[in-house]
Amino acid sequence: MLARHNSVRLVPRHGSTTAVVGVLDRTTGPRLRDSLLELAAESDDGVLVDVEGLELEDRELVKVFSFVALRLGDWPAVPFVLVTGRPDQRAVLAAQSAPVYADAASAEAALERPARKRARRVLTRSSRTSTSARAFVRRTCAEWRVPELAEDAELVATELVENALRHTDSVPRLRLELRRRRLSVEVADESPRPAVVREGLDLTETGLGLRMVAKVAKVWGSSRRRSGGKTVWAVLRRA
């Protein structure tokens, strides 16, 4: 007898809604988790997921949605909600503390979108790339009246930009975002390889590395994008 190979996929719908169709099991669960995180990495306003077409073969695995919601609270800090017209699904999802609603209107209303400020800069690859990044960060922090975050934000931007220059052939794309009391510093590149902290680096030549980012940031990470490449990000918090 041939083994059954289940699948799960995301299907874009109208507005900010994306449908998930297929079977959620121990094989497809990790793929669904990664796909939702990649989707959110390119969302500015929030993620609404219609799960009515998803079969829950293993009900314990609905925890994947709770994990995604928790993970997105750190970055990119966008709201994440589920919608399904099936009462049986809502009961299972609610039991795992997943943010689920019975209809699209209720789910849309639950997409809390707090005010945020964004600034972007596409950098050129040159000997002055990091200098330009620091100047952009310093100026933006002054405009947003968060000078107390400028020093750490400059350090983080420098290390993320240098990391992109050293390990990819991409033009780094720097983005800052201020939401409530959090400032995120993000650098996107075209390489899908995740950024990792490497041990034994010679810190005297190319900067302090991602270890310094990990020390000054509240949280940091590397997230793949559905369109390709990745975003390396760090979140700083105002006192």
Rank of each mutant, 00 (worst) to 15 (best):
M1I: 10
R4C: 11
N6L: 05
N6D: 15
V8S: 13
R9F: 10
L10F: 06
V11R: 13
P12G: 04
S16T: 09
T17F: 07
T18Q: 06
V20C: 10
V21E: 15
G22S: 04
V23R: 10
L24T: 09
R26L: 08
R31N: 00
R31H: 02
L32V: 00
L32H: 00
L36A: 01
L36F: 05
L37N: 01
L37I: 10
A40Q: 02
A41I: 07
E42D: 09
D44P: 06
V49G: 08
V49M: 10
D50K: 00
R59Y: 06
L61Y: 11
V62T: 14
F65D: 00
F65Y: 08
F65T: 01
F67G: 04
V68W: 04
A69F: 10
G73V: 01
D74L: 13
P79K: 05
F80Q: 05
T84F: 06
G85L: 07
P87Q: 04
Q89C: 09
A91L: 11
A95N: 05
P99H: 10
A105T: 14
A105P: 02
A105Q: 12
S106G: 08
A107Q: 03
E108G: 03
E112H: 08
P114E: 03
A115L: 13
K117S: 12
A119T: 04
R120S: 09
V122Y: 06
V122F: 08
L123C: 07
R128L: 11
T129G: 07
S130L: 13
S130F: 04
S132C: 09
S132I: 11
A133R: 02
R134F: 01
A135Q: 12
A135M: 08
F136M: 10
V137R: 06
V137K: 07
R138A: 15
A142M: 11
V146C: 15
V146I: 15
L149D: 04
A150C: 14
E151P: 04
D152M: 05
A153T: 09
L155G: 00
L155H: 00
N163A: 14
N163V: 07
A164D: 02
T168H: 05
D169G: 11
S170R: 01
V171I: 01
P172R: 04
R173K: 01
L176F: 05
L178I: 10
R179G: 08
R181P: 03
R181G: 13
V185W: 06
E186P: 00
V187A: 03
D189N: 10
P194M: 02
P194D: 01
A195M: 12
V197I: 14
V197H: 05
E199Q: 09
L203I: 08
L203S: 11
T204D: 13
T204S: 14
E205K: 13
T206M: 13
L208Y: 02
L208E: 06
G209D: 00
L210D: 04
M212N: 01
V213C: 01
K215V: 03
A217K: 00
W220V: 02
G221L: 02
S223P: 00
G228H: 02
G229P: 08
G229N: 11
G229L: 09
K230R: 12
V232Y: 02
A234Q: 06
R237G: 08
A239M: 00
